[in-house]
């Protein structure tokens, strides 16, 4: 999706993002008392490269390979009928599955919480993890569901009239978190997904 980012100002730089991810990696390991049962799943699109980086980071801390994959939540969304159908993003569950594992869901921005609800339902159909944790790069508030993140890169209090954009090197050519005015402040479900 091509985006006009003029009028957006940076909130996190590439260095800050890298440091946040490293910190989150340590937190995950500490919380899980090791990395042996971890499976890291990114939510497309920008959650996936973030998940890969997080998994790499955990692997280097613990010196074991952490399985990493992707879980597309489109088919599980509760807002499908609010806009035209979209092409699906790949789902890629690592061999070994999720049964009995600690799944770390990774997304770029946590907002209404509806994406995470969909991800939990999707995960239900994949298997039965021992536990599910949530890691997000940015938590911008305004939850509509009782969901909170276990690991947060940056808490960013925002107005619904604002829009938060996460750029990642793998998709956008550079790393940054930006904030600017929302195009349509009412339809905030769209904003969360206008990535």
């Amino acid at each position: 999706m091509s985006r006009d980012l003029s009028g957006f100002r940076p909130v996190l730089s590439d260095d800050e993002i890298a440091r946040a991810l490293t910190r989150m990696a340590h937190e995950v390991v500490e919380r899980s008392k090791g990395a042996s049962d971890l499976v890291v799943l990114g939510i497309p699109s920008r959650g996936v490269p973030l998940a890969q980086r997080l998994a790499r980071s955990i692997s280097s801390v613990e010196d074991i390979d952490v399985p990493v994959g992707a879980i597309d939540v489109t088919m599980y969304r509760d807002d499908l009928r609010l806009r035209p159908a979209r092409a699906l993003e790949p789902t890629d569950i690592p061999t070994g599955g999720v049964d009995g594992k600690i799944v770390v869901l990774v997304d770029d921005v946590l907002y209404s919480g509806r994406t995470i609800r969909a991800a939990l339902t999707a995960l239900d159909d994949v298997g039965r993890p021992q536990a599910v944790r949530l890691a997000v790069l940015v938590d911008r508030g305004h939850r509509e569901l009782p969901i909170r993140a276990d690991h947060v890169g940056k808490n960013l209090p925002t107005s619904v009239r604002e829009s938060v954009k996460v750029l990642v090197e793998e998709v956008d050519g550079r790393d940054a978190v930006l904030i600017g005015a929302a195009e349509d402040p009412v339809a905030h479900v769209d904003l969360e997904d206008a990535r």
């Binding site: 088919m75 499908l80 009928r81 609010l82 806009r83 035209p84 159908a85 979209r86 699906l88």
Partner: peptide, 12 residues
């Protein structure tokens, strides 16, 4: 069926 039906009713 997904591409036909999952989206917004008949905005398109």
């Amino acid at each position: 069926l997904y591409l036909m039906l999952a989206g917004a009713g008949d905005g398109t």
